[in-house]
Amino acid sequence: MKAVYTKPISLTETANSYCPGCGHGLVHRLVAEVIDELGVRERTIGIAPVGCAVFAYDYFNFDVTEAPHGRPPAVATAIKRCLPDRIVFTYQGDGDLASIGTNEIIHAANRGENITVIFINNAVYGMTGGQMAPTTLEGMKTTTTTKGRDVKVAGHPLRVSELLSSIEGAVYIERVTVIDPANVIKAKKAIKKAFQNQIDKKGFSFVEVLSPCPINWGLKPLDALKFIKEKMMEYFKLGVIKDSTNSKESK
């Protein structure tokens, strides 16, 4: 028998601790597949966030560090500047990147750091038990918006990809999702491009993934996929938000 699909080498054998149907495991797998395919596992350094993906160092089969909440882009900046030929990426959730770490992500983008950022947007704080995230949809119930997010009080959900797209130093920004096979294939393509850009020294590349969090949304896994399709994708439009890859010369 010939292998059609096997577990990527860039994932360890450790079973992940994510909840059933959580998108983290799926995106971890896509990142690992891309790193395998690009043949860069032995020179990759990942930066895990604070949040559900904090244990990413147990699941990725390459060098990974922890970073304080929101600071992965600062940590990645220094690693990449000290070791320019290594492949450096951050993996961050919406609390980490879109709330406490907005300063770090904006300035890493603005410096045009030649790093890859994987941004998991599941519209909720997962690890701490389902509080409102900056990306929580209007009217969406969380443990800190029990009657649904009231935009008059809590503001509107933050579109980080669009926000970053105005920054000169960001060369590639795409929003994808993982709700069905076609979208998973697209998501992987985007992730691959974001890493390829780094190899080609194009600069700051950013992939936002709309990702299911069935447990904190109070939905069954398949209903969570439906929620992304019907609700999240209405507000967070999929697609390439910025791509100046071809106009950027290698730095």
Binding site: K2, A3, Y5, A15, G21, C22, G23, P181
Partner: peptide
């Protein structure tokens, strides 16, 4: 052996093979 099952698996728990 279309591998859509493996493609969607968040646990990387599925491997797919086909007859040569």
């Amino acid at each position: 052996s279309c591998a859509l099952c493996a493609l969607m698996c968040p646990e990387a728990a599925i491997e797919v093979y086909k007859e040569e």
